[in-house]
Computed example of a mutant assay.
Amino acid sequence: MIEFFFDCSSPWTYLAFHNIQRLAKECGEPLSWRPVLAGGIFNAVNPSVYASRESPIVPKAQYMLKDLADWARSAGLAIKMPPTVFPVNSVKAMRGCIWLGGGMVPFATAVFEAYWGEDKDISQDAVLTNICKKVDVDPEEFFRGISEEAVKNQLRANTDEVIARGGFGSPTMFVDKTDMYFGNDRLPLVRELLERRMAQSRSACNSAP
């Protein structure tokens, strides 16, 4: 089982969200989607993110943009960094993922694409309404659902949980509950782990009497 803690406001999460689906399918590994608020994580355990935005190290920031573009090209995704509105308040979108539950993937995909690919402000109700219509979700039910206390509480609980388990940003991934990986660039390590485990399983089957 791969747990994927994510916030649609992160560019690296946009890439990882796309890439991990293919990885999990190829390795036959189930995915558990865990929406969180990256801002809540940063406030609690990683405030240096804000400082780096206010006073970026120019060569590092320039390289980050190149690195992001390279990874996006590798994934076959369009990305604009930074978007016109950055950072963005993603709380309504992430509550929407919670409310949709097992059906969240098409919605989350559309949110990622709207923000990172089309430069749309996903904090705006009009943008979220159009996304809902795109993925056949009733907008009125959506906005009613994301106002429910149970939905708000679950998003907070997911955020608190990933912090308690050692996470410090998005995307944070766990394999089998305890093996943590952070960031799109760690996916090759996740793949190696799963492929190694698959090989060990095959070897055990072949050696069985």
Rank of each mutant, 00 (worst) to 15 (best):
Y115F: 14
M104L: 14
G28N: 12
F17I: 06
S74R: 12
P30K: 08
Q62E: 15
F86G: 07
E113Y: 01
N19F: 00
V49S: 02
K120P: 01
G76V: 11
A44Q: 15
N89G: 06
F86L: 13
Y14N: 01
T109W: 01
D70Q: 14
R22N: 13
C8K: 05
G117V: 11
Y63C: 07
W12L: 10
A24M: 07
W71T: 11
N19K: 01
I41P: 01
C97R: 02
P35F: 02
P59M: 04
A38W: 00
R34F: 03
C27I: 05
A110M: 06
F17N: 03
L23H: 02
P87K: 06
F86D: 08
F86T: 10
E26C: 04
F42V: 05
K120E: 04
Y115W: 07
S48R: 13
S32C: 07
L37W: 02
F17W: 11
Y50E: 08
S52H: 06
E26T: 09
G117Y: 10
S9A: 07
Y115Q: 04
P56S: 11
R73Q: 14
C8D: 03
V85L: 08
L77T: 05
G102M: 14
R95D: 00
M94H: 03
Y14F: 15
A114C: 14
K25V: 09
G40T: 03
G96K: 02
A44E: 15
K120M: 09
I57P: 01
P83F: 04
D7F: 05
K92H: 11
N19T: 10
P30G: 05
S55G: 09
G117D: 12
D119S: 07
G101R: 05
C97Q: 05
A78I: 05
W12S: 08
N89M: 04
Q62C: 08
M64N: 10
G101K: 03
A16H: 00
A51W: 05
A38V: 15
G102L: 12
W71K: 06
P30Q: 12
E118A: 14
N43K: 14
T13C: 14
L100F: 08
F17T: 01
N43D: 15
G40Y: 01
K60M: 11
I41V: 14
D7A: 07
V91P: 01
G101I: 09
R22M: 10
T109K: 10
A51G: 09
A93N: 11
M104H: 09
